[in-house]
Structure formats: structure tokens, C-alpha cells
Design a protein around this nucleic acid. Sequence first.
DNA 1: CGGAGTTTTGACTGGAATCAACTGCGGTGG
DNA 2: CCACCGCAGTTGATTCCAGTCAAAACTCCG
Lengths: 251, 251
Amino acid sequence: MLARLDAAVRPIAHSQDLANEEAPNLASIFRDKPLERLGAGSALFWEGDPARHVFEVVEGVLRIFRVMGDGRRAITGFLYPGDLVGVSMRDRYLYNAEAVTTVRFRRHSSTAFQGAICHSPELRPLLFARLCDEMAAAQDQMVLLSRKNAEERICSFLLTLARRLSGDGSPATHIELAMTRLDMADYLGLTIETVSRTMTALAGRGVVRQAGRHGVSLMRLDIIQRLAGDAQSTEEPERPSNVTRRAVWPS
Amino acid sequence: MLARLDAAVRPIAHSQDLANEEAPNLASIFRDKPLERLGAGSALFWEGDPARHVFEVVEGVLRIFRVMGDGRRAITGFLYPGDLVGVSMRDRYLYNAEAVTTVRFRRHSSTAFQGAICHSPELRPLLFARLCDEMAAAQDQMVLLSRKNAEERICSFLLTLARRLSGDGSPATHIELAMTRLDMADYLGLTIETVSRTMTALAGRGVVRQAGRHGVSLMRLDIIQRLAGDAQSTEEPERPSNVTRRAVWPS
DNA sequence: CGGAGTTTTGACTGGAATCAACTGCGGTGG
DNA sequence: CCACCGCAGTTGATTCCAGTCAAAACTCCG
């Protein structure tokens, strides 16, 4: 009873990778599996369910979250095309996974996935790398939740999303939030009211521009970056420890 | 390129395992390495340092943390004997590691460690399992930071510590906190004053008893467990596909 | 056009942060 | 042995950011 990790793992490269012609990658394991579909709001699995499958998100957005006894919800991550869900060493899923939007995905049995990983010296390090990226992202999130104020949380979130959606390194200047304010709040450790007020305040200062319910244009990336709070303070920019500064975020 | 994870990984079993006579375990990789020593407060490495080594904690406690530009600190974890530090797929450490107490540890080069893992079908799943446990712990911490109040955070922390220090499943009833109030605060996303007040309040209610600066006796484990907030609410202990509400807490 | 859900806005509250003493322990050296 | 210092921790007073409660406004549907 070996493998079956329980973590949601994210890709290093974005999803539009050339899965077929290139060197094997994690997505290639799923290539011949049928495409399945999950309506917005539906659950892919629940915490505690037997962890029989591993999933690859092909299109759409998933949220993974836990719910406390009294109903308080904490979203621990959003998953995008190319991400794997349900990779775990345990026999039960440790969190809930729900579709934020309509999601298209492929399914693989945990045992077969495990076998494929174990026997492929090419794939193994890829999975390891994803787990490590995920761990780094989790630590970023812990910093955010433990020490950032509402404005810093929102700006960090927008920036992360902008970087992820752009594929390459530089953040996109316009993003479409797939999720509601409630999802954002439960991910950032805030309430919907605070998320709303903070977004409005940023828009009022011309830092962002809201376009419809879910569209956000990042008008002043420089300011957003500063407000996100990850920046070095202005002393000794040559600190070798700063070099990696944020090797962190995936993509 | 290949292996070098960046996560602090924890053991499933406690450290007093029979490293030598039993089946290979992760500690066995380090068995022939010399024991080194690190004074309380000293750094093992800094965020951004080249990740040349992987460490095994043999004795004492480490803290791993990040510092924001303006000095705010967030401790993302404490590491105990048997834990590995610096396992990473990146060429730089992503966080700081400092000794809370005097620490004794062993050191292994990242590349050699990586090689040992890659070539050992026994060790690989163990490392995977640790990463996954670490990921699960990180998610617990995100729930704590995002949705729990001060009292719940303190009780969760005490409970986690009690479980870890006892080795087996049932929580120890007396624990010695290796860390200061400041460490606790930076781990729990609180201030020292709030940690202090909350501890005092718990002691005042007879839930815990403080013994000296760092000793804590858990007088009412049942209450602590309830206050930690992870408990089921008292409805329907069996959870079939009771999709609506929520599906269970792990195990 | 209507209606439900989502988002925004406003008024007020409250829990933890902040600011500020004060206490007590532990080590050190006279 | 004890006076002194310094740091960790506690306690108190006050502030403030985000939460709560409530209602209005907007959007996206059919």
C-alpha cells in the first residue's frame, strides 16, 4: 500500500503544453482517458470519500476546501487546467473538491496512476516538483493568512491569478475571476463584505478597474505589487537570500 | 532539473524508530553522517541560500519561517526529531530555518540524497508519504489561520503538539513548549499579548495548567478538543453520501 | 419584465492589535 | 549570598480593522 498522495498538485508549465509530441509529462498519463464533465457547483469528491481516482483538470476551475464542524469554510486552493487533483498517499480524500465553473476533466485510477509514476523515471521527478511547488504555494498562503491585511490579501490574490493566467512570467493585465466573492473570501480568510469593500477601494484609487461582475483590469501593476506586501523593503537589494525572492509561484 | 524538494517533511512514526535493524527508512540515509550541533537561535540556512544540503533533525526543535519585506514574520512550521529539512526541487531554499533550542542534526548533500531516493523503491514512497502528510498539515494550518479565533488556534496548537510529542495516537497530557510566546504568535497568526491572554484565560477556567515558563498540563483534553474547533458538530455521526452538509473530518 | 442570487453600501460591533506598564524569573558578578 | 540587569511574559487601557447585521442595487437568468 504505497502511493496515493493527498495533495492537489499544480503544473510547472501551463496547460497548453504539447502533451503528445513532447517528452512524457504528467498529462500524458491521462491522454487516452475519456473527457468527463462536471457542472458548476457540483462536487468531484468529498472529504472522507475513498480516494479511488486521480483527476486532471482539462478546462474550468475547481475549488478545494474544508468545512469546520459549525459550517465555516476554508478554501485551500483553486485548481486550473493542467492541475492534478486527488493525488494522495491516503485511502481517503482529505478535502472537498467542487467545480467553480463547468469543468472538463479526465480520470485515472489511483492505483494505475501510482504504478505509472513508480515505473517512470521521467514522470516521478515531475510529480515531485509539483508537490514541492504546491508546498511552496501553501507556505505563501500561510504568510498571507497569518500576517497580511485585507488589502494585501486582495492584491496578492490578484497578482497570483494574473501570473497564473498569463502562462508566461509577466502578469496578465486583465483577468476574469471565475469565482464569486464568497469563494474569494473563503480563500483569503475574509468576508464577502470586506472583499467587496477592498475591491471598491482599489478601484476608487485607480489601481484596478472592475469590469462586470468578474472582470478585473490591473491598471497599476506596480502599485498592486507593492500593496501585495511581498516586496523587499528598500534596504540592501543585493541580499543573496533575496535572489530567489519568489521562485515560488508555480506556472 | 531533478529532485530537490522544497518542503519540510515530517515522519509518520516518531524518531525512536529502529533505524538500523529494520527495513530501510529515510533516517537510514543519514546514519553514517556525523552528528552536528546548532545553538539555540542560530540559523541552519536562510531563504535564498543555495540548497546544497538536506538535513535530518536528531534532537531539538527548529522553526521554519518567512519574513515579509517590512519585518513581519510568519512561522510556517516547527520541526522535531525525525523530520527532514531542505528537501526541495529548487536550487534555493524557500524559507529560513533556525534552531529554537539547541539542535543536533545530520547533513546530507542534496544531490546524493536525491540519488538515494531515486534509486530506492523502498525509500521513495516514504518520502512521498511525508510530503503528503506535510501538505495535509499545511491545509490544517490554512484552516486555522483563515477561520479560527484565538482560543481555537491555541487549543489546536496544544493538541497538535500533544499528539506529536506523545509518539502514539493519544495526546500527551503534559507538554513542554520549546518555543517562546513570540514563536507561538508568529506561528498562529496572533500577537504575544493575545497568546498570553488566551493561555491565562484557559488556565483560569481550569482547562490547562501552566507550569513554569514553558510547561503546560492539559487538564481537560475533552474541552480542549472541543475548543480546537475540528470536532464534528453533534449531528448524524454517520455520513453516507450526505452530500449537502459536509463529509467528515479525516482521521 | 420579474425574480433570485450576487454584490455593494451603510451603520454599528467586537475581537484582536497596539501601546504601555509592570512582574518575575534567570543569570551574572560584586 | 544577594543586588542588579535584561529579557520573557503578563496585565491593563485603548484603538482600529474587519466582522456582523441590515438593506439597497445590480446582474444575469429565464
